[in-house]
Design a protein around this nucleic acid. Sequence first.
DNA 1: CAATTCAAGATCGTATACAATCTTTGAGCA
DNA 2: TGCTCAAAGATTGTATACGATCTTGAATTG
Lengths: 259, 259
Amino acid sequence: MKLSRRSPARHQKTTKPVTTADPESSNNLHAVFALPPGRALDICLNIQTALLEHKLAPGVKLSEDEVGEIYGVSRTVVRAALQALAHSNLVTIKKNRGAFVSEPTIREAHEVFQARALIEPAVARLAALAMTDKQLAGLKAHLEAEHVALHKEDMGRALFHSGGFHTAIAEIADHRVFTSMVRSLISRSSLIIALYWKRADTACESHSHHALMKAFELRDAAMAESIQKSHIIDLHSGLDLREKPRSDTSLSAALGRTG
Amino acid sequence: MKLSRRSPARHQKTTKPVTTADPESSNNLHAVFALPPGRALDICLNIQTALLEHKLAPGVKLSEDEVGEIYGVSRTVVRAALQALAHSNLVTIKKNRGAFVSEPTIREAHEVFQARALIEPAVARLAALAMTDKQLAGLKAHLEAEHVALHKEDMGRALFHSGGFHTAIAEIADHRVFTSMVRSLISRSSLIIALYWKRADTACESHSHHALMKAFELRDAAMAESIQKSHIIDLHSGLDLREKPRSDTSLSAALGRTG
DNA sequence: CAATTCAAGATCGTATACAATCTTTGAGCA
DNA sequence: TGCTCAAAGATTGTATACGATCTTGAATTG
């Protein structure tokens, strides 16, 4: 399997590489990528979903040829998709080296959660003021989906729905600038969690989400803001962000001439 | 001058199209565009600078051939640059139509300044805590450059330096996530101001900036935060964001069959 | 045997060709 | 005259070719 240059299988979609999301959750991940609708956008969303579900680990190389073959498109399209993902900091492009799933640093992890702690409470406040009954039901659906995934021990999917819950709040706030920021931060959070999550208990099944729902039901903006702020800080504290030898470093240390 | 397909003047830089910024200000506009260093990034930065200086008006079409000819590169490179700009919301790409300098809506204008009112005060607080004497001097330089430009009635350049002042504060705060957000918001603000600025007095020569400097000199975080918040709100109020017939609409109305 | 060099292979960067789509314009017709 | 519609022109969308750069691994040399 070492063909010198894979032929991009002209116009023939080969295999759907990663699971496409459920209807109630795949509806609107878009709006972060400023691409005209088309194959490049599809690839972006597909890869983003894979990242949110932890099906693609930080550091994995995304070769243009390989991705192109998977989706049955040429490198031209793949490059557009990868560059869009790079703009959202989900992928890092190294000159003449290729694209890799980003590996957020500890510093970046802190910054992302500091940003979330500033923005998401404000967004929750807006959402509480704008919330309709239908939207409330939609939020509840996200939590239930998360619960079901957790019960099936499908952590990736649970995390995906947890992110969907946060994103949905931003959408309800109906503020596109904030929504775009929140979406971006949550995607990056998924990578951060993949690298640094330490807690034994699962991602977000904390009662914070349910407490937030309560605030939304009451249309209590101040309460929603306050709970969301605590929640984000709690998430931040659930990360193990101490400086320590990274896996590859420890590997070289472990294999050092001690034996 | 209607060649059916312009030849991209292989490897021959023709003309530098827009002024490249002054040394003290052009240093670091980057870090918003996730492109590997290269020609595409250069084009991005050049166009961004032109936008910040109001040398390129909202709505102007950025034809791939045209831009490619100007910079002496092929459409491949231009497309990467335009897509990067599109991701920052500075350019809007319409499928099969091309790229245009974005024309922010009134709603977008409100949202951008709401976001700035949330984020920049927090950033100012961080900056006040981290400020060194050298950085303080750097900030002062921005204000002086703005003042000089205003004296020469070069509004575009004044606005550029005003934005540079805000960006520099974010850099001093040394928070990459916030810095990237602020940079993006300020770029969009420049387009918004181009469309909606109403005040007779100039952009930011308000004493707000000098008051901010005072707070920074005192390392008074709370004061810096408070002043910055007022300043952003003041800028927001300097826009004319009432719904009204847009130029083209009023044109068709004016040319209607009224005799 | 270890370190170094260099060539072959793999991958990315960019230009170009062609296809798809949109816009414009002018002929045909009422 | 004014409208419809089609064909030509212009522009973007995508595939592919080729050069540039990096990685890898084997041969060479100390």
